[in-house]
Amino acid sequence: MDYLSLISIFSAAFAVAFGAIGPALAEGRAVAAAMDAIARQPEAANTISRTLFVGLAMIETTAIYCLVISLLLLFANPLLG
């Protein structure tokens, strides 16, 4: 196997592995903060969870960019031809 495809496979795994760390920590913090807020103010649970969902979607986007990059490397790599 030539070295370019080896590097592509390695960097695809690398992108997903390390690209998932940041969003995972961020989503954990966001959910923890939302839980805290709901525990303090249970009557605002609807608003908080809706905002939480939208925020989680925003945070998750970075992880999904990594997924797309790794898919491009694996399935649509321009360097491998």
Binding site: A57, E60, T61, I64, Y65, L67, V68
Partner: peptide, 13 residues
């Protein structure tokens, strides 16, 4: 762009 990549990434994965 991020909107459709998000939907695509989640459903496709």
């Amino acid at each position: 762009f991020s909107m459709f990549v998000r939907l695509f990434g989640n459903v496709m994965s």
